[in-house]
C-alpha cells in the first residue's frame, strides 16, 4: 500500500508501524496470558518430570557411588554394556512377552464381561460390583494372595492339579511358568479397572442406534460388530494405551512374587532398573535402562496414536 502511494509516505508508515506494534503487543499479551495459564502445569511437570528426565540422562553417562553421586564419566560405556549384556536381553524379551501375554487377554476378557454386564437384567448391579472388585485391591494384597495360590506344595492351584492326578507345577520357580504366573496375576488385577472403563463406554452409547438397528432387523452379533465396537473405539483406544504403558511399568507383583527370578525370567525392565539402582547401587546403568524404557514407551505411544486415530470413531 505504501508503494502505490509515495506522496504521503510518512503517515502510512507510522500507521503501519503502529499497527505492527499493536499486533506484536497483543501477541506478547496473549502469550503471557497463555503462559500464565500453563504455569502451574509447567512448574509441576518441570519439577517432577523434566528435571528428573534430564538428570537421568546425565546420570546414564556416569558411574556412581552408593549415594548416587557421580564418580567417573564413562560416556556411552553404560549403554554399550547394557546392549551387550545377556541379562538385559533376557529382560527385554521378558518385558515384550509380558506385554503380549497381558494386554490382549485383559482387554478381551474385560470386554466380554462388560458386554455381559451391560445387559439389563435383574441383579446386574451385583455382577458389575463383582467384576470390578479387583480394582479395590492393592497390588501388594493381590500379589500376596496369589503367592499363596502359587505355593509349590500347599498352594490351591497345585492341589487342584493333584486332584486330577496332574504333576504339580513350579509356578514361580520354573522359568517356563513364572512369567505366565505373573501375567495371570496381572490380568486378574487389571481386569477390574479395564472392565469398569469399558462398561462406562458401553453405557454412553445412544440407545437409538440399537433401536434403529432393531427395526432394520439386525442380529445381536451384527449389532455388536457394527455399532458397539465402533462406538466403543475411543474407550478401547484409551484402555489399550493405558494397559500397554502399565504392562511396561509392572513392578509390585514382580517384587513380591518372584524378585525377578527364576533365572531372571521375570526380570522385567522396571524391576531390572530397581535392582540395578537399589541393590547393586549402579545408578548409571539403571539410568541408561530407564532411558531405553522411556524411548520404547514413547515409540509405542506414537505408533498407537498414528494407527489408532485412523480407526477410532469419535461421535
Amino acid at each position: 500500500m505504501s508503494m502505490s502511494n509515495p506522496g504521503i509516505p510518512s503517515s502510512t508508515e507510522i500507521t503501519e508501524i503502529s499497527f505492527e506494534n499493536v499486533k506484536k503487543k497483543q501477541r506478547v499479551k496473549s502469550f503471557t496470558k497463555g503462559m500464565l495459564f500453563l504455569l502451574p502445569s509447567i512448574v509441576l511437570f518441570g519439577a517432577f518430570l523434566f528435571y528428573p528426565l534430564f538428570k537421568t540422562m546425565y546420570l546414564s553417562f556416569f558411574l556412581t557411588n552408593a549415594r548416587g553421586e557421580t564418580t567417573v564419566f564413562v560416556g556411552l560405556q553404560n549403554y554399550i554394556e547394557m546392549f551387550t549384556s545377556p541379562i538385559f536381553h533376557q529382560s527385554m524379551k521378558s518385558t515384550f512377552l509380558f506385554v503380549l501375554y497381558t494386554v490382549p487377554t485383559t482387554i478381551i476378557i474385560a470386554l466380554l464381561l462388560a458386554v455381559l454386564a451391560n445387559e439389563k437384567l435383574k441383579g446386574i448391579g451385583f455382577f458389575r460390583t463383582i467384576f470390578s472388585s479387583t480394582m479395590g485391591i492393592s497390588v501388594a494384597a493381590a500379589s500376596v494372595f496369589w503367592l499363596y495360590m502359587f505355593h509349590p506344595s500347599i498352594g490351591f492351584l497345585n492341589q487342584i492339579l493333584s486332584l486330577f492326578g496332574v504333576e504339580s507345577i513350579g509356578w514361580l520357580t520354573d522359568p517356563k511358568w513364572a512369567l505366565i504366573a505373573v501375567a495371570v496375576t496381572t490380568i486378574w488385577m487389571n481386569l477390574g479397572f479395564t472392565f469398569l472403563v469399558l462398561l462406562g463406554g458401553l453405557q454412553s452409547i445412544d440407545s437409538y442406534l440399537y433401536e434403529s438397528a432393531d427395526i432394520d432387523g439386525a442380529g445381536y452379533f451384527h449389532k455388536l460388530r457394527r455399532i458397539t465396537i465402533p462406538m466403543l473405539s475411543p474407550t478401547l483406544f484409551f484402555v489399550i494405551t493405558v494397559t500397554i504403558i502399565n504392562a511396561f511399568q509392572t513392578f509390585g507383583q514382580i517384587d513380591i512374587l518372584t524378585q525377578g527370578g527364576p533365572q531372571n525370567s521375570t526380570n522385567l525392565i522396571v524391576y531390572s532398573i530397581y535392582r540395578e539402582a537399589f541393590t547393586n547401587y549402579q545408578f548409571g546403568t539403571a539410568s541408561a535402562q530407564a532411558i531405553v524404557l522411556f524411548i520404547i514407551i514413547l515409540i509405542m505411544t506414537i505408533i498407537q496414536f498414528k494407527l489408532g486415530e485412523r480407526k477410532v470413531h469419535y461421535q
Binding site: H151, P152, S153, I154, G170, L172, T173, T258, Q259, P262
Partner: peptide, 18 residues
C-alpha cells in the same frame, strides 16, 4: 525340592512335611 529364592515358601513346605 525347588523353592527358588523364596525362603518363606521353603519353611512352609518343611512344616507341611513336603
Amino acid at each position: 525340592a525347588n523353592y527358588g529364592t523364596n525362603g518363606d515358601n521353603m519353611v512352609a513346605g518343611f512344616l507341611a512335611g513336603d
